[in-house]
Design a protein around this nucleic acid. Sequence first.
DNA 1: GTGGTCTAGACCACT
DNA 2: GTGGTCTAGACCACT
Lengths: 144, 144, 144, 144
Amino acid sequence: MGIDPNHHVPIYQQIVGHISGLIGAGVYRPGDLLPSVRALSLELVVNPNTVQRAYQEIERIGLARTRRGVGMFVSENGVGVAVRHAESAARDRFREGVAVAVSADLAADRIEAIFNEAKGSVPVRSDGPQSVAEGDRSPTEPPP
Amino acid sequence: MGIDPNHHVPIYQQIVGHISGLIGAGVYRPGDLLPSVRALSLELVVNPNTVQRAYQEIERIGLARTRRGVGMFVSENGVGVAVRHAESAARDRFREGVAVAVSADLAADRIEAIFNEAKGSVPVRSDGPQSVAEGDRSPTEPPP
Amino acid sequence: MGIDPNHHVPIYQQIVGHISGLIGAGVYRPGDLLPSVRALSLELVVNPNTVQRAYQEIERIGLARTRRGVGMFVSENGVGVAVRHAESAARDRFREGVAVAVSADLAADRIEAIFNEAKGSVPVRSDGPQSVAEGDRSPTEPPP
Amino acid sequence: MGIDPNHHVPIYQQIVGHISGLIGAGVYRPGDLLPSVRALSLELVVNPNTVQRAYQEIERIGLARTRRGVGMFVSENGVGVAVRHAESAARDRFREGVAVAVSADLAADRIEAIFNEAKGSVPVRSDGPQSVAEGDRSPTEPPP
DNA sequence: GTGGTCTAGACCACT
DNA sequence: GTGGTCTAGACCACT
């Protein structure tokens, strides 16, 4: 789930999806400290303002909470929010794909075949637990 | 497959998909005259410049050819191009949706369920033949 | 209701309050075109990005809707949103003031007196209808 | 009057208001030793540097005076300063609230109603005497 | 160190 | 012309 600056989806939204996916997958857990704006901007090679905007959205949708001067912590119900976010995004993409196919009169089993082909071609996530070494895990310090 | 001006996919690309779908579905057939830029801009409530840009793309990918002073005609192999275009677009969307779901660690059968849900919720195309009045159908006049 | 760059309330929030007040007061009416980002940034002597951020919030809370390439239009229920926004902001400020006074053990009638004093000292809005000459009113062109 | 780290009013100003309120209410009396920076930072769950900054302000406005190596003592005229501080803060908030309401054209009696609503909803201070254990009260030892 | 806000200036899609 | 996004760099309050 790298960031593609040339994709039509805004970078800040890609970042939201990126972080949300990591929370949904349990890489970041409730109470965990997310990477700082500056750290993530260096990692993703993106301007800090763009990361900042993503983090605003991440807080707004309830994935994490800010502690001034400290950082962003995954919220208690962050996993649920992330899963719902992913399901909703996936559903939207699937709907768009089906709509495109139906409008071009593709047969139902052809659509099914394309879906299975797509499913098979998506690489299994490679930025999961191993991207955060155990020793690097932030201490689980829940905000008050 | 209406045009959504608030979607992050550029409107001109949405128009390409729209016309491509109609060609793929046989609403416009090889040799048919596509609606004029002005007519389509009125129909889709979109600026003529944007339609013009879509038509450039439509020509570029081989869906239709321009005859100066006359209009755009669906090319001989337009149906094949349109079908491949739709399959490719659908596959891309499916891949994106699967990628999002996988990155959030959704189970394979959950992904399948979301896909079926999406498939069921997409309405059958309603912008087909009736968007081109019978009397407006150009005679099958292939460009030289 | 001018913008004060030194106030601790962020400028973009002040702009939201400014525009919201004008909508609540009927200076901008549903369907009206709001001033462009650039125009307002010149008028308020504020960076366009800051106005842009305010406009994002204005759209998010339902005060106005964007039409790409055209501008922001006051939404149908914008007046209601604006009035609720103003009531909520006023209530918050009143609560804060009362809390401060109560915590310092000020007597109830002293608090009342301070409130009346404040009410008397607030100048009647001077940026109302007269700030937008009738002839300058944008045509009421409701978005589709 | 607890400290809200997410409020846009700087925390150090909130602390000034907090201490000022306690002085105005007679919880801390002229000559009393205020809690140490460290103690208050623990009590309010705020960084010592921030409390330090608040104490600088508290001294600056004449609420208390520092005796090096000993601590901060409520000044002789501290009660008057605190009461004026509270009145001024309350007046400012009331003015802001009225300004917001007036700018959105809310009727005078609606504003009055919102004020009364706010007045009724503010809980009676609960962080008063019990925040300073009886045994901790410093003897009334006026600084030289 | 942390996030939050702001200015300055650029490019994009769309009208 | 319009709004939307992004980079670059600064300053702020807070830890």
